[in-house]
Design a protein around this nucleic acid. Structure first.
Lengths: 336, 336
DNA sequence: ATGAAAGCGCTAACAC
DNA sequence: GTGTTAGCGCTTTCAT
């Protein structure tokens, strides 16, 4: 039996309403406030958040739905989201979907049952396009990916520009036959592919691309393994590129593994570049040229947008588009 | 206004109790069940979990308190915990303490207010030793670290044995002046230090150790930077070791950065070894020799222990001690 | 400023 | 098998 507000009231010789007011910094005389605080301390009372939420009709809880917390991008974003959330008195419920639309649907449903105030969501393309945000009952801020038709706030990277930047960097370093490895579950992969194709076309070059499907397996970095297999196959073919772009950190990791296994020299035989400045990209030999995403900023901005949306439900939709930063390292060293 | 169980009951022409029974798979005739299910589907009803928790007095929620989700060890453990939890119908509230005892206390308090069923906790040594588990009101499973006096279930690595294994590996590779870099906030660092000292003593060697204090800063891998600074200083001294052990992945990362900056050859001038088979350790050049922790197993075992404890509150305390696995790579190659 | 009382949405006795 | 009813612990009118 835990102690309730009733016990505290009795102990302090006041009504439950007064205790509630003390807890909520309501108008209470100094004398009674002191008595209540003493009773709280003595009894070790802890307010029951379920009761509070039920009665007050706000949960002070948000959902954070990502594909896999083990992806360093989402790890960093989550941490930033959580910090802002806790500072604002909000809890976070974290969900991993493994890019699986069924799990996405399940967790959205769970969020409804939790009566969350809002959700920050990195959706697959399928879900982003089909999602009826209005019917959900809470606002959604999309991160990392957003369908063209998604009617909600979003915090995104300028993916086309970033991909183009990577291509221009490689062109500047003297590479011409540039290939790309892209994920195909999220809009992010599609946008980076588009930027890649555009930049190549602008240079009068054709853009060879391969797409890596999702893997919903457990306990293995799924897309990294798929990327390794895809890259390994490509490297054996006659049209193997002289430079390779990978559209996210996991795919780049897979590409590196394939290259190692094949004994291909980087950048001598194959230059490499990709997205996400994960810690290994700096330590690998040679270091990986990457587009660094402002991960903290993405998480913080998403949480702040959600808080603002909660305060002003009617305000116009907003998209925050952040720029990536090119970090040039040895893997794309200029040809000589 | 969201639809409640009352609305569904009215729509189906039954009592709320019947709706509740349908939802909870209670005894209901097929005819009524069908009507209720139709009403649920038509109204888009979602049960309110706050109300359910308040009434039923169980939250089906656990707390997971770690120092920093960005530490790959905790990332992996968290994912495993969450998978088991969701499969068992439990939610997870994740908290990052940054090794800060004040935050630990704050989050434990929050867990009480949430009336969580239990908590999985990677505590600092200070908290692990002072914690009154009995007074918390919920069971705790310690992971990664445990105070000697901690009166609760735990899932741990055999830290002494693992550290000793690392030492023996280095001795076998011909290194003698072995130094160690240890964290000093958790019992883990202390145990690994003890194993290090013992193994060195067994070989008749003295064990030079340095300790890295915690850093509670934001947005920087705290202990990695501290380790870099500590290692950088040490390498400049007259008594610089010929091999260095780092007691976790972040410290090893810091050591590598120091070594790179100083232009020290690995393993030629300094051999390196540590804990945690993080992805960069394989990709770095040379690859890092590490003790791999069974991260999935740790998370899964912790969640399962907690579930068992909830079912049998009175059962004796249990400690699961898992073995680390040595992954030998180039950073500790035999001297010649 | 304080207290009495209603009720948030649900489950679990208890009656039939 | 089904309905009625009493709370779970709290906030929030509404009186005073």
């Amino acid at each position: 039996m835990t102690t309730s507000i009733k016990d505290v009231a009795q102990l302090a010789g006041v009504s439950v309403a007064t205790v509630s007011r003390v807890l909520g910094n309501g108008p209470v005389s100094a004398a009674l406030r002191a008595k209540v605080e003493a009773a709280v301390a003595q009894s070790g009372y802890r307010p029951n958040l379920s009761a509070r939420r039920l009665r007050s009709q706000h949960t002070h809880t948000i959902g954070l739905i990502v594909s896999d917390i083990r992806n360093p991008f989402f790890t960093a974003v989550s941490r930033a989201v959580e910090d802002v959330a806790y500072q604002s008195g909000m809890r976070v419920i974290l969900c991993n979907t493994d890019e699986n639309p069924d799990k996405e649907a399940m967790y959205l449903r769970l969020m409804q049952e939790e009566r969350v105030s809002g959700v920050i969501f990195a959706a697959t393309r399928a879900t982003a396009e089909a999602l009826d945000v209005a019917g959900l009952g809470f606002p959604v801020v999309m991160i990392d990916r957003a369908g063209p038709s998604a009617r909600c706030d979003a915090v995104l990277l300028d993916n086309r520009a970033a991909a183009a930047q990577l291509v221009e960097h490689l062109l500047g370093a003297g590479y011409r036959r540039i290939g790309g490895l892209f994920g195909n579950t999220s809009s992010t992969g599609a946008e980076r592919h588009a930027g890649f194709v555009e930049a190549m076309a602008a240079a009068g070059l054709s853009a060879a691309a391969r797409f890596v499907p999702p893997r919903w397996a457990r306990f293995v970095a799924p897309s990294a393994e798929a990327a390794r297999a895809e890259a390994a196959g490509w490297l054996r073919e006659a049209d193997a590129p002289e430079a390779l772009i990978a559209s996210n950190g996991l795919l780049l990791l897979g590409a590196v593994k394939a290259v190692r296994e094949a004994g291909v020299a980087v950048p001598g035989q194959l230059a490499l570049a990709g997205f996400d400045n994960d810690s290994w990209t700096e330590l690998a030999d040679p270091g990986m040229t990457v587009i660094e995403q402002p991960v903290d900023e993405i998480g913080r901005a998403a949480m702040e947008m959600l808080l603002e949306r909660l305060q002003q439900p009617g305000r116009p939709l907003r998209k925050v588009v952040l720029a990536g930063r090119l970090v040039a390292r040895g893997s794309s060293q200029a040809r000589r």
